[in-house]
Design a protein around this nucleic acid. Structure first.
Length: 649
RNA sequence: GGGCGGGUAGCCUAGCACGGAUAGGGCGCAAGCCUCCUAAGCUUGCGGUCGUGGGUUCAAAUCCCACCCCGCCCGCCA
């Protein structure tokens, strides 16, 4: 017999027999729901009900007496996976599974379904777009931003395994002042030849140019302020200026040549700030020269991103340019349509969207989870100079996405909750309430460095590349220590999946809503609660199976009586439940946690009990089947979070 | 000021949606275990006012209220 969810079979059976018993014993009482819970320890069975504690209020007896009456009324002829039911503690009803049958069901299901085991399919196989990463093409991906692709990719993998058709989209935010800053610096340098990794090269140009432009702008402002002797203004500007000057010193030290060159070239210019703005407007207007420069620098940066991300096993189905939406008039169309709604008004030359009015009129407060007295901030759609803003363009982009999928998951930092809320409200205003309902903002918390926030504008960040490099380097040292006999090539291969796995795991494992302070030992952990630990456990399982060199032909599952074996069995049987929960709640960290817990149990088992040499052979066979199932489940979990499951390490 | 998220041992973290039996792990620290299937492992020990105070309940880390601390957002930035 094979089941896609062995534990659910047991649960269903328990619910059914208990439900019938209740109807029989207390036909007159209303039982709101029958939720069974997992008892804290094996000795209390595998599922339990605490309903008797509640029932006491309606029936005048102690919970324990009620539990016993109910147990007596259970229809034992319907027991299949249930071995026995016992009253315990103050009045719990504990269901004990028949391990002989349950082990057979679980192990056979896992081994037969193999690569599909655990991946219970959804009833509604929708098309889903998962937009993630979408790092602006300005500088290398830094470790703060790296939480996004790790989470996004894991979510995409989980949803795909759940049976959805998933498209992974990268939104390239090339419209805006920052890309113009780089293009400006790049042009000043006379389209220089790329040195090193392209995104790192572009990042340098961006940081220096942006710093110089900023200093230049502040100096001009200072002159103006001095002319009218605005003392307060002067101190404020001076403070900002000091700050940027210190950044300039840092940059000059880090990149002396490039800094000097840009400094010289930009000084020649009359008004860099103005040049940048002009370039930005030209790009939004689709002028050829601007297009050439900005697309070129963006492409260079993206080339570097692809390199970085593919190293981490993160891939995309579509790369969507924000500028395309501007040039194709989609944004203009949306604006036209928004203008016909009663929610848009012109205010001193700008176009503003009254989100609060929409919420009130369509009665969305409760639906959007807002407090009754909370007022949604209005959103500016169009600047006085006629250019659009990010969220405005995002409305067009979102509608485009909904032409391709029924559901959209945006993996975006939680600092953008307001913008995402306004976006959702705009969809309601345009009459796309269904889209709004199917738009999910997967918000995750920030990654900071100890003591300060990463700042890409100031060039203060640790790149994902250097984190992966360091992790692989450390992993190599470990491999060399542990397996000196391997060839250099083999060591490198292992070091790669170990190091990169460790980084991925570290960024996936923590609950996304928690803030993370980046420390090297968080990502360089190769011991317990890390990808290498799980990978090692997987390799160990493979090793046993390899050494056994036989198939478990006559497994006697009823011989798996050890507590350790039963705990593993339960974990294996519960994997489908965990998977469904992770998919429905979009919680990749549940998968990481589960994998770690299973590896933990497996290692304890490994040390305590022999497999190949176990006697009699039927027991050995049963344990081999158990090890094989552990191998399958560990591999399936690692695949879900994008980590290599190695056969040796 | 308003909104959102977080607060669990020296440090990191699970559990919170849907209240249940002794609050699980990891790091670090101390002591052990490789003539035996991979020691990136295992065993044992030390370490807890679950931010604070109330409330609801047979039962609260979990639900409700108030407060405190940290972070983020409240732009004609993205």
């Amino acid at each position: 017999m094979v089941s896609e969810n062995p534990f659910a079979e047991f649960r269903l059976e328990c619910e059914n027999v208990l439900g019938e018993a209740i109807k029989k014993v207390f036909p007159e009482f209303y039982i709101p729901r029958l939720t069974l819970e997992r008892p804290p320890s094996l000795e209390f069975g595998q599922l339990a009900s605490s309903m008797c504690f509640e029932l006491v209020k309606q029936v005048g007896e102690t919970p324990l007496v009620l539990a016993e009456r109910l147990i007596k009324a259970l229809d034992k002829s319907k027991f299949s996976l249930i071995e026995r039911v016992a009253a315990a503690g103050e009045g719990y009803i504990n269901f004990h599974v028949d391990f002989a049958k349950f082990s057979a069901l679980t192990l056979e299901s896992a081994r037969q379904l193999d690569a599909e085991y655990g991946f219970v399919k959804t009833q509604e196989p929708l098309k889903i777009i998962v937009e993630h990463t979408s790092v602006n093409p300005l500088h290398p991906i830094h470790i703060g931003q790296a939480r996004n692709p790790m989470l996004g990719d894991a979510i995409a993998r989980i949803l795909k395994s759940r049976g959805y058709t998933v498209f992974r989209h990268y939104y390239i935010d090339d419209v805006g002042r920052q890309t113009a800053v780089i293009a400006y610096g790049y042009e000043k340098l006379g389209k220089p030849k790329t040195e090193g990794k392209p995104d790192h090269f572009i990042g340098k140009i961006y940081t220096i140019t942006s710093c110089l432009v900023e200093i230049n702008r502040l100096k001009r402002e200072l002159e103006l302020a001095k002319a009218v002797s605005a003392t307060e203004e002067i101190t404020k500007i001076n403070r900002e200026l000091d700050d940027w000057v210190s950044v300039a010193f840092e940059l000059k030290e880090k990149f002396p040549e490039l800094f000097e060159e840009l400094l010289e070239k930009i000084r020649e210019n009359e008004d860099p700030e103005n040049m940048v703005n002009k370039l930005n407007r030209a790009y939004e207007a689709g002028e050829e020269k601007a297009k050439q420069f900005i697309r070129e620098v963006s492409e260079l940066c993206l080339q570097g991103f692809r390199e970085t991300l593919s190293r981490a096993e993160v891939f995309y189905d579509s790369w969507d340019w924000e500028s395309d939406f501007v040039w194709s008039n989609r944004v203009t169309e949306i604006l036209q349509r928004l203008k016909t709604t009663p929610y848009v008004l012109t205010l001193g030359g700008i176009l503003e969207f009254d989100a609060e009015k929409v919420v009130k009129k369509l009665n969305l407060k409760e639906k959007l989870g807002l407090r009754e007295d909370y007022e949604v901030t209005p959103l500016t759609l169009v600047r006085a100079d006629g250019t659009t803003l990010y969220t405005t363009r995002d409305i067009a982009y979102t509608l485009w996405k909904f032409e391709r999928a029924e559901k959209v998951v945006n993996v975006i930092g939680m600092e953008q909750v307001l913008a995402q809320l306004q976006l959702k409200i705009a969809l309601h205003a345009l009459g796309y309430s269904k889209y709004a309902d199917n738009l999910i903002h997967f918000a995750y918390n920030l990654v900071t460095l100890p003591g300060y926030k990463m700042s890409s504008r100031r060039g203060r960040y640790i790149t994902l590349d250097e984190v992966m490099d360091e992790a692989v380097k450390r992993a190599y040292e470990e491999v060399a220590k542990r397996s000196p006999q391997l060839s250099g090539k083999e060591k490198q291969k292992i070091a790669n999946f170990v190091g990169i796995g460790a980084v991925r795991y570290a960024l996936t494992e923590v609950d996304p809503s928690k803030p993370v302070v980046f420390t090297w030992d968080r990502v360089l952990n190769f011991e317990k609660n890390s990808a290498p630990y799980i990978q090692y456990s997987h390799a160990r399982a493979c090793s046993i199976l390899r050494k056994a060199a036989r198939k478990p032909e006559k497994p006697a599952y009823d011989l798996l009586k050890e507590k350790l074996e039963r705990e593993i069995l339960l974990a294996l049987a519960s994997f489908p439940d965990i998977f469904v929960e992770a998919a429905e709640l979009l919680k990749p960290n549940l998968i990481a946690d589960f994998a770690n817990a299973l590896a933990d149990k497996f290692n304890t088992f490994y040390n305590a009990l022999p497999v190949i040499k176990a006697e009699p052979q039927e027991l050995s066979d049963a344990r081999l089947a158990l090890v094989d199932a552990v191998r399958i489940v560990l591999r399936n979990t690692l695949n879900l979070i994008g980590i290599v499951a190695p056969e040796r390490m």
